[in-house]
Design a protein around this nucleic acid. Structure first.
Lengths: 233, 233
DNA sequence: CGATCTCTTCAGTTTTTCTTAAGAAATTCC
DNA sequence: GGAATTTCTTAAGAAAAACTGAAGAGATCG
């Protein structure tokens, strides 16, 4: 998946570069502009998903700039400003923005805010009708609720650990599909499987202990010999 | 159909103009006032359907203003305020208001709220039963009153701090849902969570100390290992 | 300005979960 | 049937997550 593009507008090259390093590290595409005019020009023929803007620009002030930008598009704008200035004034100037930070700032905090804004933006714009993932899975006497992290077997509450829950969810969401231990490991742990251990197997056993009547003759999680595990449809 | 009239009260001309541009763009009639007194005067001989009000006005503060307005009419009021101020204070001040936003804000979001309030206003006026948000939450021996910020456990009054109250309210309003510490932080503090500390956990502990009989075996706020906290349904 | 209340941070403790490893059991193949 | 392969079981040590208590920073109120 292609990552979002972020435009940094600040008259100080060093600050632009500093921010760029952190953003690139997170995988974002980064563009720079020295002042408001340059930024406006850039926006004309480039797709940008978020703008980081220094409020104190020489040519075009923040408010006017956001006005011009918002006439065209609706990406989030995060403003930067020097702490020494009157906060109230900054608040006024930053009207039209979605968030702001005062300098000096922690780059990691800026990254967090960028992410937070993009989350919001993407949610609102790209998915107007929430095709939300189903959060209740039912099969036979087994009920899995991903919102409350609850699992019930025939009315009885069962407490699964996070890893156990994730494995069960994976299998239950993809009923019929067979997952090898390796495949499960990479899906649940989100890191490459490199050595053969039986960690996954031990977890499978724990789950069976908790949800199966007879863990020798499992009703839900079946073993597919030589291949892996599955839950039947 | 003639569109509604909206009054903007803010001491900064630029902000008034910015908001006006967006509102006009949506077809609303727009009026401006520099301060509370001017607004009151204007209201005497003009029909206004909704007010957008900056909480920090020079002459007449927000609360006094809303009180005066509400003596006469019942149009929705949306308050604006700076982020740096204590959110709780804003809460208090905006008691008479229907909604509020903190600066900086995205004008498009403001428009969305204006529309939403007007929809409600029209609906309520046609059907005078207020579908207002529930402000008393009860579960077992725990009684939470969001209007008065009071909490009682089995008849006994319990004093929670603002942060503690907000966390409890969040969990109690969404019973069954599991909230991670990160999620709680972003919801309650209204800013992105970026560093891992156990601030939320300490607050949870404080709440438990106050409302739980035995804070080792919590009856209300349960820990969901590896995920977060929840209050059961 | 000082007293008080609230929030955050930190380090140490406890609890729960995960991983490892080794032997047992089951299944397949010859 | 017997060897080889794969899966299952068990338990203990390692790791991770949550809890606790205390102290200092910060905000609030008179």
């Amino acid at each position: 998946m292609e990552k979002e593009t972020i435009l940094i507008v600040d008259d100080e090259r060093e600050i632009r570069n500093l921010i760029e390093i952190y953003l690139k590290n997170e995988g974002y595409q980064v563009l720079q502009a020295e002042d408001g005019q340059q930024a406006i020009d850039l926006l004309e023929h480039t797709d940008v998903d978020l703008i980081i803007l220094d409020i104190m620009m020489p040519t075009l002030d923040g408010l006017t700039f956001t006005l011009q930008v918002r006439e065209q598009k609706d990406m989030p704008i995060i403003m930067l400003s020097a702490k020494s200035q009157d906060l109230d004034k900054i608040h006024g100037l930053s009207t039209g923005a979605d968030d702001y930070m005062t300098k000096p700032f922690n780059p990691l905090e800026l990254i967090a805010r960028v992410k937070s804004q993009l989350r919001r933006y993407v949610r609102i714009n790209r998915a107007p009708v929430q095709p939300r993932q189903e959060n209740e899975i039912e099969l036979d006497d087994l009920l899995i609720n991903t919102a409350t992290h609850e699992v019930r077997v025939g009315g009885r509450d069962v407490r699964l650990t996070p890893t156990e829950f994730d494995i069960l969810e994976l299998l239950a969401r993809n009923r019929g599909m067979v997952f090898s231990a390796e495949h499960i490991y990479e899906k649940v742990w989100k890191e490459p499987f490199y050595r053969s251990d039986n960690t996954v197997m031990v977890h499978i056993r724990k789950i069976r202990e908790k949800i199966e009547e007879n863990s020798r003759k499992p009703k839900y999680i079946k073993t597919v010999w030589g291949v892996g595990y599955k839950i039947e449809t």
